[in-house]
């Protein structure tokens, strides 16, 4: 499990887990679960497209994720109709499917993009992934205060002169980058589970923002490490474990939260 060819899996998994724990925390805080669900679909089409024209998949992932994020940002001021968004998201998936059909990819490649692959990041990509992840975390730290402020009290933030649009777009770009890095490992369909499950559980377990953020990172790391281990041990797709662990974690937090609420009333 810890042999040399698995080193990349553990390293990239760790980077992605920390990233998902941090960025996901703000996704939950800002109720941006829509974006967290939509951007991976765009990333999927991007990776498939890059495959088709023979580019580095990371390039396709990032460029399409950013396009998806910016179009969400552009339409979010006008409240969107759910049908329009649902259709455009489905269209992105269909586009990805078409790209994959055109390229000479075989089924494992499609499965890997959709449901994840522990060996999804090669040695040559490890450095760019690490650098981009650091960039995301630094950006989040820089944005921390306005991000929390505009999430919790948008009116007050506006009154204080915080540029909500700038904060929103910056955040979406960070989310796009984080998604592009996460998709190759846990898959386009399960990136949402990793980005939302641990942070949502953490938020239920702790009221203190900093502690919840730490907990969110811890839970994301636990999810990813356990998923990599299980995936390796049982030779099953990592997406299955990420989806299951994410849901179990969240439901446990939910139960514990409800119990505490009952106790505090009694």
């Amino acid at each position: 499990m810890f042999s040399s060819f698995m080193t990349n899996a553990w390293l990239s998994g760790t980077i992605v887990a920390i990233l998902a724990g941090v960025v996901g925390f703000f996704v939950v805080l800002r109720a941006a679960s829509f974006a967290a669900h939509a951007i991976p679909n765009g990333a999927f089409a991007g990776a498939a497209g890059a495959n088709l024209v023979g580019l580095n998949p990371l390039f396709g992932l990032i460029s399409f994720a950013i396009v998806a994020a910016l179009s969400i940002g552009a339409t979010s001021r006008r409240s969107r109709s759910d049908v329009a968004t649902a259709l455009s998201l489905v269209l992105m998936l269909a586009l990805g499917a078409a790209f994959l059909t055109l390229s000479t990819e075989y089924e494992p490649a499609i499965n890997a993009l959709l449901f994840g692959e522990i060996l999804g990041v090669s040695s040559s990509q490890l450095l760019p992934v690490l650098l981009l992840a650091v960039l995301c975390v630094v950006a989040i730290l820089a944005l921390y205060r306005p991000l929390v402020f505009t999430s919790v009290a948008p009116d007050l933030a506006a009154a204080k002169g915080v540029n909500a649009t700038f904060v929103e777009i910056s955040f979406l770009l960070v989310l796009a980058l984080a998604t592009a890095l996460t998709v190759p490992i846990v898959g386009a369909l399960l990136t949402f589970s990793l980005m939302i499950g641990p942070p949502a559980a953490a938020r239920l377990l702790s009221k203190h923002p900093a502690r919840a953020l730490t907990l969110s990172i811890t839970l994301a790391l636990a999810t990813v490490w356990a998923s990599i281990a299980c995936s390796f041990e049982f030779n099953l797709p990592i997406g299955f474990f990420v989806g299951t662990f994410g849901a179990v974690l969240y439901l446990c937090a939910r139960v514990s939260h409800a119990r505490r609420a009952v106790r505090s009333v009694a």
Binding site: G116, G197, G246
Partner: peptide
């Protein structure tokens, strides 16, 4: 509604199950 995080996370488990079945089929 779509913004419900709980439903999204629980449905993630269903997607995970699909991943498992498809992998086993392959």
């Amino acid at each position: 509604k779509g913004r419900d995080i709980a439903t999204g996370v629980v449905l993630g488990a269903a997607t995970g199950l699909s991943a498992l079945f498809l992998y086993l089929s392959a």
